[in-house]
Structure formats: structure tokens, C-alpha cells
Simulated assay, not measured.
Amino acid sequence: MIMQRSTFTGSPIALHGHDRFADRMRRITDGLLDEGALVTVNCRINGGKAPWFALRVWTGREKDVEKALDAIGIRSLVPMRKGPDHRRRGRVIEGAMMPVIHGYVLVQMIASAEYLAGLLGVEHAIDVLGGCERPMRVSDAEVSRFNTLARGGTYDWERPVDLSLRAGEAVWISAGPFCDRKATVVTPNRNGRGDVVVSISIMGGEVPVTVPLALLKKL
């Protein structure tokens, strides 16, 4: 008969001293991010181009995360577009700027699981698309193309698009972090403008993403 021990010898880790676990984890995260930023910058200086990754963040906090990463020297980007116009008492109020794809920040960093894991310690960050071990990469050329299209107004909410979609239809994503991926329409859009919710298969799971209608093509 195996007897179970009801007592333990020794002391719990980190109970001696005044250092809190959260503080120590913050320092570890900051150290990884500082090191990752330095390695990435050196790569650019030496003529290389580190890949980009999509960091999933809380919706509405995209620019906050971008600013936080910029402050510690990590290159990041949130492509923006003009949101929907509002009409009040006969006046048209132009839409405010908003991310092209809600809930994502593009981050350029050396493809190291350790460095990418450091991103998860940034406030409002959720996870790296695809996971830190095998993340989905986005080329520097694609990020540049996507941002150029966004800045040119291609994805503005009010810009008309000759496309009508029904729920369940298969579509192709034409640019951005999900470029050249097949998706399935979740919410229909027959307005010829605005956004669509699609479902994308990633790592064996279905990921719902809200994207501009102009980002999609019928298969």
C-alpha cells in the first residue's frame, strides 16, 4: 500500500523577500522584449528583414499596444482606415479612423519562440497568431503592400465594393496577415460596403475575424 505524505519540507519559492511574482515576471518579459528588439534592429542594420507576425490584442486597444511596443524599440504597425460616416440632423460627420482588422497588431521580430513569448506580457496582448512555437509569418513586402492599400483608402468603410456575400459562402482574403487564405462568411453583407465577419481555419481551429468587404474575393 502506498502512503501519501501530508506534509512537505522546505519553503515555497519566492516567499522570502519582498519581490512579488508579478513583478519578477514583468522584469523577465521586459528583458526578453529588450533583447528581441536589439536582435531585430541589428538584423535590419545588417541588411536583413525580420518577418512580421500578428499579435492578437483586445479590440479597441490596438493603438495602445502599438505605442507600448514602439516605446521599447519594437517595430509594430496597425494599418488604419476611415470608419463609417454618421448622419445627424442633415449633417454628415466623417467617420473616425479605425484599424483595418480589429484586434490585431502587426509586429516585426526575429522568429524566436522565446522573444515572441515576451510579447504576451505586454498589456492588452492575448496571443501570437499560430502560437509562439509555429507562428504565422507575414513578409515585409506584404505588410508594406497592405499598409499602402489602407492608406490609399481601399478599405475605408464608405468606399463602395461590387461584392455581395451570403452566410456560408467561401471567400479568399486578398491582403494583410491572412493573405491568400480561404475563409467562410459568417455574417452576410449585401450593402456593398462595410465589414464582414469570416471564419478562418488556423492550426486546426476556426478563428472568427471581422474584415472589410474590400479585403475579400469570391472563390
Results as ranks from 00 to 15, higher is better:
82 K>R: 08
70 D>Y: 09
79 P>C: 04
1 M>P: 00
187 T>W: 12
16 H>W: 06
6 S>Q: 09
173 I>S: 08
63 K>T: 12
118 G>H: 08
61 R>Q: 06
45 I>Q: 14
162 D>S: 15
86 H>R: 05
116 L>D: 01
130 G>K: 00
217 K>A: 05
152 G>Y: 15
46 N>G: 14
200 I>R: 04
31 G>N: 10
49 K>R: 13
144 S>C: 07
73 G>V: 07
120 L>Y: 07
40 T>A: 00
91 R>H: 15
131 G>M: 03
176 G>D: 12
31 G>A: 05
109 M>S: 00
133 E>F: 15
33 L>Y: 13
62 E>R: 10
182 K>R: 08
134 R>A: 13
197 V>H: 10
87 R>V: 13
137 R>E: 06
206 E>H: 02
107 V>L: 00
65 V>D: 00
169 E>R: 13
100 V>D: 14
86 H>M: 15
50 A>N: 12
14 A>G: 07
9 T>M: 02
166 R>L: 15
135 P>V: 09
163 L>G: 10
196 V>C: 14
53 F>W: 11
74 I>R: 11
84 P>N: 14
38 L>Y: 08
72 I>Q: 00
108 Q>C: 04
82 K>L: 02
176 G>P: 02
193 R>E: 04
20 R>W: 05
93 I>M: 11
196 V>Y: 04
192 G>H: 03
51 P>T: 08
81 R>M: 12
194 G>S: 05
22 A>K: 09
181 R>C: 08
153 G>C: 11
133 E>T: 03
165 L>F: 04
200 I>Y: 08
148 T>P: 10
104 Y>V: 14
178 F>N: 05
70 D>L: 04
196 V>P: 08
211 V>W: 04
57 V>L: 11
74 I>S: 01
113 A>E: 05
33 L>P: 05
32 L>C: 12
125 A>M: 14
6 S>A: 07
96 A>R: 09
162 D>W: 03
210 T>L: 14
79 P>F: 08
120 L>Q: 06
163 L>F: 15
98 M>Q: 14
96 A>D: 06
